[in-house]
Amino acid sequence: MVSRGELFTECRSLIAARDEDTADFDTTCIFQDLLGDKNPMFLPKEPVPDDKAAEIRSLAKRRSEGYPLQYLLGQWEFWGCNFKVGEGVLIPRPDTETLVEQVLDICRREKLKAPKIADLCSGSGCIAVALKKELPDAEVYAVELSDKALGYLKQNTAANGCGDIHIIKGDVLKRETAMSLMGLDILVSNPPYLTSQDMSELQTEVTYEPASALFGGEDGLGFYRAMTELWKMSVKEGGFIAYEFGMGQHDDVKAILEKNSFTDVEFRKDGGGIIRTAAARNIIVNKPAIM
């Protein structure tokens, strides 16, 4: 049998041939997952059973070919919670925690202890679960169209103790879906926002993720235009929309929000210093009385 140290060196070299920067991290994650040990290199001379070594080599080979580490492991962490992931659902990313933080700050500022929140294009459910964890009295809805993503969404809400999140299978670009959820305090979404050019230049890892969760139209703004127009009546007067978007899209997203009667647009930067999210308030309109 091969030792842990020998196998680690072998697998690391295989992955490093593709990406030296992530080789240590990726190899360690694979070892932790398959050996069930948080510190697999604490005992480098420990022998690895042949069947386990074969599995580890297989995952390392797939990783060296560009297959996403998160899919190989079958789960990924977001907001301190574990989320099941696989082909057919977008992988949760740290940048999206910026969106969760912004929504939570709005709730604190506005003293919303039990807000009604809808998470559109919910995918794995990472946003909905994170918000429900922090706001246990909130009425949270997670809207998703993809059958594959819905499977992960249901698993993740249950596994994280958030079975009371209301899961809705629906197309966020259809009026009937928007009309089914009214009186929202907060609408939150990380919709598809990659442009046609972005899609043609994707890293190999990202090509395994569902295109429907990535492509936002020619200029990447299709979902923002359609969703804001369709869902603005679902957000109560004085309520909020909060969006995540791609690098350099903030001015366009702000213009879309303001065109649809949202004001006081607040941007927030992610950990890399990129403007990543925006939140805006629905303007209170004095509607004329019906005679």
Rank of each mutant, 00 (worst) to 15 (best):
L59Q: 05
G217N: 02
D21C: 05
I290Y: 12
G74Y: 09
A159F: 06
K133F: 08
N260A: 03
P191H: 06
A178Y: 00
Y67S: 07
L104E: 01
E144N: 06
A226I: 06
T277G: 03
W231N: 00
G151S: 12
I56D: 00
G36I: 10
Q75A: 13
K269R: 15
C121R: 05
E218Y: 09
L72P: 01
G273L: 07
G66D: 11
V2L: 13
R276I: 08
V103E: 03
A278C: 12
R62W: 04
M233G: 11
P94L: 11
A53G: 10
V188Q: 00
H166M: 10
L34A: 07
R18G: 11
G220D: 02
S124T: 11
P115A: 03
P288L: 12
I283A: 08
A178E: 00
Y208A: 05
T228F: 00
R12C: 06
F83A: 01
V188D: 00
E110S: 11
G248K: 08
G183N: 14
S64I: 08
G5A: 10
M233Y: 11
E20S: 13
C11M: 14
R63W: 06
Y243F: 14
G238Q: 02
L153H: 00
V103H: 03
G216F: 05
A53C: 09
F8W: 13
A242W: 00
G272Y: 12
G216D: 09
I91L: 02
P210A: 09
N82D: 14
D270H: 09
M179Y: 09
G123S: 08
A138V: 03
T277C: 15
T28Y: 09
N39D: 13
G248R: 07
R57H: 11
N190R: 02
L120P: 02
Q197T: 14
V103W: 02
L35K: 05
S189P: 04
K132D: 03
L145N: 07
N282Q: 15
D119K: 01
T157N: 05
